[in-house]
Design a protein around this nucleic acid. Sequence first.
DNA 1: GCAATATATTCCTTGCAAGGAATATATTGC
DNA 2: GCAATATATTCCTTGCAAGGAATATATTGC
Lengths: 108, 108
Amino acid sequence: MEASTFRALGEPSRLRIVEALRHGPASVGELAEVLEIRQPQVSKHLRVLGEAGIVVVEPVARHRIYRLDEEPFEQIVHWVDSFERLWDARLNSLERYLDSVRRAAETE
Amino acid sequence: MEASTFRALGEPSRLRIVEALRHGPASVGELAEVLEIRQPQVSKHLRVLGEAGIVVVEPVARHRIYRLDEEPFEQIVHWVDSFERLWDARLNSLERYLDSVRRAAETE
DNA sequence: GCAATATATTCCTTGCAAGGAATATATTGC
DNA sequence: GCAATATATTCCTTGCAAGGAATATATTGC
């Protein structure tokens, strides 16, 4: 899992942009208006999101329509799933906890 | 969804710490040794992760055992799921795309 | 209480990331 | 080609976040 994906989502304005794009593609101007963020900042945030692979652009006349790419979202789900599978595999958390206590005791 | 959760995961060393904790709880020293990060940095990163609710601590003798809290991971899954549900609800992406083109055309 | 061990915190420096303002670039209709 | 519109980029400033080094704090066994 790339930290850059999370980093891109870890900025409040960018997270708002992503959540706005949840409902469908939008142009830079639309996002700026809806979210009340100045146009240059929207463009800059979209650049970061694009570099992280979260959005893709398609030019339409003078507009540039941005939309979410599903791939990073699938990656995130897989990543979290791999955690939960492990958690489920070890039947209870007490077992794992005792492991770590055991290891800690070894250095006493 | 809190941007701070993603921000905490958006730093490479912290993401490595989280992935190390995937296999079970560990002490600060263990993490520092396994990941080859100096102890003070590990403590600082764990602080950030703790403030984001991603890890919890339990003191055991002189050690402090950190482990992942499942809640933020569940939040992330729910968040992404809410996206994919919307995507599925609108049968094809062409439909959404045309919406945005239509809106763009209105300002011409 | 003291030494040893494990961890957290503080202080410092440095680089990066975000916003603002201005401006450059691209596209369209004419 | 030019004006109008939409968007991207540049330059600047500022604050924050990360690492390093040193030190403080907590806990244990004795």
